[in-house]
Structures are given as C-alpha cells and as structure tokens.
C-alpha cells in the first residue's frame, strides 16, 4: 500500500468525505424517524408534539397489514424457490467443467441487465397471452404466484453471484476424498458442501427475502388484484393525509430488517471465523488447504 493512501492529508480528506456522505445518507432517514412521532398530520415544520398515534393508526389499518402479509408470503415463496434453483445452478458453474459454461453463465446473469420495468412488462404480456395463444383454453391469472415467479428470475442471478465464490473456495480434494470413500453424490453434497456454504446460503436467503419484499417494478405489472406492500405504500403516498402512518409503518419495517441484516452479518462472521480456524488447523495437519483467502 504505497500510493496516496499512505499520505496523512489524503487520509484525513478521505475520512472527511466518508463522514460527510454518511451524514448525507442518514439524515433524511433520521428525519423520517423523528416525524413518525410528530402529532400533526402535516409532515413538516413546525414539530407539533410527541405522539404514538400514527403507529396506532398504522397497526389498525387492515389494508396495510394485509399488504404486508401478502408481500411476506411472496417473499417467502420466491426466496425459497430461488435459493433452490440458484444453488442447482451455482454448483455446476462453480465446481464442474463443461463446454456450454460461458453461454449458460451469460444467460443466468442476463436478467441483471434488463431493467425490472421491462421484465415486468414482458411477464405481463406472457401471462396475458397464455389464453390468447391457447384460444382461451388455458388462463394464467395475474396474482400472487405470478409475482413470485417473476421474483425468482430477478433473484436467481444475485444468488448465483453470492454462492459461486464461496463454492469455488471449497477444496476439490474434500469432495474427491468423500467419493473415494464411497459417499454418493447426494451424501457428499449433504455432508461436505452444504455445511461449508451454509453461512453464504443464509445470507443469500435474507437478501433475497428483503429484495422480494420491497420489489415494486415487476410486481405492479403482474400482481393483478393483489396488493403488495410496496404497491400499497406507493398508492398511499399520493394521499397527503395518509403519509404519516406510512412513515410510521416504514420505520417499523426498516428497523426490523436492519436488525435481521446486521444479525445475519454478525452470524456469518462468527461462522466464517470458526471455519477459518478449522481449515487452518487442517492445513497444519497437512491436509491440502485452498481456503485461506
């Protein structure tokens, strides 16, 4: 590290920029926290008085609660399904050699370069044209499963990108040793691969869940009569008198997901450290070790 990073003034300038941007990022959200406790129904100065009314209003709003339940159901379905298909995809891509690898990788990652809006529109056309193409014989209703299907496509590349580096770091000899000792492919996966990637899987699951829960662009086109949380929030934001309770519920949602994200990150670090100690011990014992970063 012998570039400008080592000079004193550059260090202080960069620390200054960092602090400034942290403030810029946190200030608006902090204001939301403050205004969620403001008594008045207009979100703005002056601050009228402290109250928890907006939280009460939010938690007794049936439509709001229902939309949260809908989004949680969709997130549960899509993150579970996408973890499965993502893992099925990531294992061969990370640990096997085959000819079609590059085109398959390109296909898997291609949803990343298609704006969600366009993908949402494409799904809408697809689901709508099912009954046109089959002459009204088949119909695909726009609703909850339609949104979940779309979210799996959106999430799959992200999960593959999270899992591949982790899978590649697993020593190939471990797998071969297990198979030489007569373990089946499934057993090798269950006893060697799965425990080693469990932390990465958990992280991928949490991220997928949160992304799906908050996803709007795909959902708005294929949800049909179903109202997800983001759709509900966006509609309510157009009505000024509803804004304070939306702020209150968002504060709750953000706080909860913050706890989950930070918790998951802490857990992951604890696991990784334990694993590192384990593989270092293995290294000392003369076992081939490809996992010390």
């Amino acid at each position: 590290m012998i570039d400008i990073a080592t000079s004193k003034w550059a260090k202080w300038v960069l620390i200054g920029i960092f602090v400034f941007e942290i403030i810029f990022l946190y200030a608006p959200v902090t204001l939301l926290y403050i205004f969620s406790f403001n008594e008045g129904s207009v979100v703005g100065f002056p601050f009228v008085g402290f109250s928890l009314d907006w939280y009460e209003t939010a938690f007794t709003n049936r439509g709001l609660l229902l939309s949260i339940r809908t989004s949680a159901t969709i997130a549960l379905m899509s993150s579970t399904a996408s973890i499965v298909v993502g893992l099925l995809m990531a294992i061969p891509l990370a640990r096997r050699k085959f000819k079609a690898k590059t085109p398959i990788m390109a296909l898997v990652l291609s949803p990343l370069v298609v704006p969600h809006l366009v993908f949402g529109v494409a799904l809408l056309i697809t689901f709508r044209s099912v009954d046109v193409l089959t002459n009204g014989f088949l119909e695909f209703p726009l609703s909850l499963p339609a949104v979940a299907i779309g979210h799996v496509v959106v999430l799959m590349p992200l999960i593959v990108l999270i899992l591949i580096p982790r899978l590649q770091r697993i020593d190939a000899h471990l797998e071969e040793a297990a198979q030489d000792l007569g373990a089946s492919g499934w057993r090798t996966f269950r006893t060697i691969i799965l425990p080693l990637i469990a932390p990465a899987l958990a992280a991928a699951y949490v991220i997928s869940f949160i992304i799906s829960f908050n996803e709007y662009a795909v959902a708005v086109f294929v949800s049909g009569p179903v109202t997800t949380f983001p759709i509900f929030v966006l509609a309510e934001l157009q009505v000024p008198v509803r804004v304070p309770q939306i702020i209150a519920i968002s504060v709750v949602v953000v706080t909860l997901s913050l706890l989950v994200v930070v918790g998951a990150e802490v857990m992951r670090r604890v696991f990784e450290r334990r694993y590192q100690v384990l593989s270092q011990t293995a290294g000392l014992l003369g076992v081939a070790d490809a996992d010390t970063e």
Binding site: L25, P28, V29, L31, L32, V42, N214, L237, S250, L258
Partner: peptide, 30 residues
C-alpha cells in the same frame, strides 16, 4: 456495513424520505 445496511432494507423508505423533504410544502421548505 454501516454504509449499506440501512439501505439494503427498503427502497421506498429512502425515496419516501425525499418525497417528504422536497416539494414546496416539504420539510426543507417548511
């Protein structure tokens, strides 16, 4: 983590914060 955690959580929260801040009768102007 400090930088990205709050923002991994909710796109709407971030947009909404500005919706409330901006505007002629928004928090900043008020």
């Amino acid at each position: 983590l400090l930088m990205i955690a709050p923002f991994m959580t909710n796109f709407f929260m971030r947009v909404m914060a500005w919706k409330v801040l901006l505007g002629r009768q928004g928090v900043l102007n008020s």
